[in-house]
């Protein structure tokens, strides 16, 4: 919370698919350098919320501000998306490109950076996620955890204002989750602004500044992790957290 003006402001966001109202009036803000975690049962619109923020899914109503720009009314969404990193549950790495080129392609094609500069940048980002020795491998030659770390490096290379993580560890074997979470912890320590949908309670509890508990398309409760874990205001929050902690453990 180094700056007063929020990086991301979401006001009264609504989205329905047919008759299914997925988001019913969601509002919250994020400040620079904050890490917020969204939790909640599946089908409560957590992923939809993330995809609405970078307009991969168009909301029905409501406002989304990235700093001062209303994303929902933006003329050129492509320039805004450059500032919003996205990490996918199923990685979304470009299969025909090496890890290095996966990280390079954004800066080269979208930001028109020279190949040499983009290569240097990509090497930096791959070092940051600890994968420099795998730079020339193709996605199919990497493990799930490694793929996701390349996915994070690819998002970082665009030097975004904020990174959205859509269940980044849900597709991973348990022993590979740790390596991805530790990269994310490092980012949090370096004050990267991150909005994360996850079921990793240990991570949520130790790393996040705030937890947002969503159910049935609304935010039931939000607050600092310790408050939500120790004395939640809403009974459902307590029940859900108890169940998840029982399932996934308290983490480190």
């Amino acid at each position: 919370m180094t700056e007063n003006r929020p990086i991301l402001t979401i006001k009264n966001l609504k989205k329905s698919f047919g008759t299914n109202e997925v988001l019913k009036d969601v509002s919250f803000t994020m400040n620079k350098g904050e890490t917020k975690v969204i939790i909640g049962p599946s089908g409560t619109g957590k992923s939809t919320l993330l995809t609405c923020i970078n307009q991969l899914v168009l909301p029905d109503s409501g406002e989304i501000f990235l700093k001062d720009i209303d994303v929902t009314k933006a003329e050129n969404m492509n320039t805004i998306r450059q500032q919003i990193g996205f990490v996918f549950q199923d990685f979304g790495l470009f299969n025909h490109l090496t890890a290095l080129k996966n990280v390079m392609i954004g800066p080269v094609k979208v930001k028109k950076m020279s190949k040499a500069d983009a290569r240097d940048l990509a090497i930096e980002e791959l070092k940051r996620v600890g994968l420099i020795e795998h730079a020339d491998k193709y996605p199919a030659q990497l493990s799930g955890g490694q793929k996701q770390r390349v996915g994070i490096a690819r998002a970082l290379a665009m030097q975004p204002e904020i990174i959205l993580f859509d269940e980044p560890t849900s597709a991973l074997d348990p022993e590979l989750i740790g390596e991805v979470l530790s990269v994310m912890k490092e980012l949090a320590r370096n004050k990267m602004t991150m909005l994360i949908v996850t079921h990793e309670m240990g991570f949520a509890r130790t790393v996040s500044d705030e937890i947002i508990f969503m159910e049935g398309g609304v935010i039931v409760e939000q607050g600092p992790p310790e408050k939500l874990f120790k004395n939640p205001e809403n009974r459902r929050t307590g029940e859900f957290l108890f169940k998840l902690t029982e399932l996934y453990g308290e983490g480190d």
Binding site: N78, T79, R81, F88, D90, G92, G106, K109
Partner: peptide, 26 residues
Amino acid sequence: SPTQMRASRSLGMSKMQGFKNIILPQ
């Protein structure tokens, strides 16, 4: 996979750029 296009778009590529650089080569 549609994620390939979604990932291209999330980096700020236009539909055409995503098609040319990501989808077509595959």
